[in-house]
Design a protein around this nucleic acid. Structure first.
Lengths: 214, 214
DNA sequence: TTGGAAATAGCATAAAGAGGTGAAAAGATA
DNA sequence: TATCTTTTCACCTCTTTATGCTATTTCCAA
């Protein structure tokens, strides 16, 4: 172990903050360089204290942990942000992740695991409470079923026309693009509408995009 | 602990398979009900053996673990599939996840952690080696930058109308939805077209979707 | 207080789109 | 061979959109 991991803690609940402070100070290899109840002085503290890892609560007065996270990453990209919170709704999880959090622990995580997680993020891992990980995976698994629902049996030509519609083309443009008469375009589009069960260009385009039949 | 967790192992490397077999048989609370070097008899084994958790190697002769995973989930959705592999390239990770894997461990994971992970998936978690988790998070963090180009200075009301357009509504429907006259709808849409530099509903909707100004 | 944007509305006209009907040619299939 | 599908085209009608011009009210800022 060369140098200690420099840790900053943001947590508004006093008991929790003090408990964590005690835990972190008692652990060899870690160095708690600050513990604050809110993120109002983030802009001073991050460049000044140069933390390796920030433990971030979500629900704090003033700026929430979710809002503070991108600020931390902007001020000091090499700092790893580890969310430590009670929330496990997908909205907040994904917001935190998108905003640059590198890990997401629920507060019910044991002290031993929290310490392990700190080492973990610091070494480039992304510790996550496994119920959080499950939600993240679910997100990926939900992607596909929407696609490939069915392709509505569009004929090859109809698919071509559909692609042009999705480019935002008018009937006239589509006719020119495919060297066919505008009446033929009308005809194809009519059939497309029947198959997709819609009755306007916009609806057809939206359905095509949503169900990825283009 | 009421009943033991029923485990099936697919792993082509004989040493590894036997090592895992030994480990799993020696662990109370777990019951290894089968260990196979390939997935050729998956269709018999899964319904017959009714595993709670399948430990799945990726690189196997015949059907790979990635190809086998959706088959397992189709045969018995309640079975949890835990990938156990040496690969950490994003392609394979995401393929496995999309195919229904509930966890992803690297083979260098310690026996203790593997045992913990098995209990974890069985209880609805998604254990992941934290370097794998990092890659998954990266995926989300890369999403955004495309968005928020500019919002074209649409007024609040225009944004409302825009949203209705993106729902595929006609002028008449939009008018009804917002309790305004159809001429007002026309007027708003005219302004929207000017600001977005388009001249049809479809183009406006496409631009709104692509640039995420809805 | 004057100017400007925002939201509302109306009228008019031309272009584009939607839907009905019909039909011919080519190719696939039963 | 007969039938079906696909692709092509035409004509007609009605509706919806696109666009030009004007105008009133409200509210905010210079």
């Amino acid at each position: 172990m060369e140098t200690k991991i420099r840790i900053l803690l943001y947590e508004d609940n006093r008991d929790l903050r003090e408990g964590m402070t005690f835990l972190l100070q008692a652990t060899p290899g870690l160095s708690l360089i600050g513990a604050f109840p809110d993120t109002s002085n983030l802009e001073m503290q991050i460049p000044g204290l140069k933390p390796d890892v920030v433990l971030m609560d979500i629900d704090m007065p003033g700026r929430t942990g979710i809002e503070a996270t991108p600020v931390v990453k902007a001020l000091r990209p090499e700092t790893q942000v580890l969310m430590l919170t009670v929330f496990e709704d997908e909205d907040r999880i994904f917001q935190a992740i998108r905003n640059g959090a590198s890990g997401y622990l629920l507060k019910r995580t044991s002290p031993t695991e929290i310490i392990a997680a700190i080492h973990d993020v610091h070494q480039g891992g992304s510790p996550m409470t496994s119920s959080i990980a499950r939600r993240v995976l679910h997100f990926f698994q939900q992607e596909q079923p929407v696609a490939k629902s069915h392709d509505y049996d569009l004929s090859p030509r109809e698919l071509e026309i559909m692609k042009s519609l999705v480019k935002g083309y008018s009937y006239k443009l589509i006719a020119d693009e495919h060297f066919i008469s505008i009446d033929t375009v009308r005809s194809h589009i009519r059939h497309i509408y029947e198959k997709l069960q819609v009755n306007s260009k916009t609806e057809a385009v939206l359905k095509a995009l949503k169900e990825k039949i283009v």
